[in-house]
């Protein structure tokens, strides 16, 4: 049971290294999907927004942790 528990912990940790990063990425993808479905974003613009959004989320996560860890 310990090994199974460790496997699930490992799997969880693979995708949730930082809860806020995970939730922000999922929220960003959901937002792009909604904006695409409501025709606010075209199929090309959505790609740019998705890519830049992910980079901005990464920047915010790293800078927040850097300030907290200083």
């Amino acid at each position: 049971m310990t090994i199974l528990g460790d496997v699930f912990r490992e799997l969880f940790g693979m995708f949730v290294a930082d809860l806020r990063l995970t939730l922000s990425v999922l929220g960003g993808v959901l937002l792009v999907a909604i904006l695409m479905n409501s025709a606010v974003l075209g199929p090309v613009a959505a790609g740019f927004v998705l890519a830049l959004g992910c980079v901005l989320i990464l920047v915010e996560t790293v800078l927040r942790e850097t300030r907290r860890g200083k």
Binding site: F15, D18, L21, T22, V25, C54, I57, L58, V62, E65
Partner: peptide, 10 residues
């Protein structure tokens, strides 16, 4: 995306 940004962050 979650896995990759997680490794990049670390």
């Amino acid at each position: 995306l979650l896995f990759g940004t997680g490794w990049l962050r670390k």
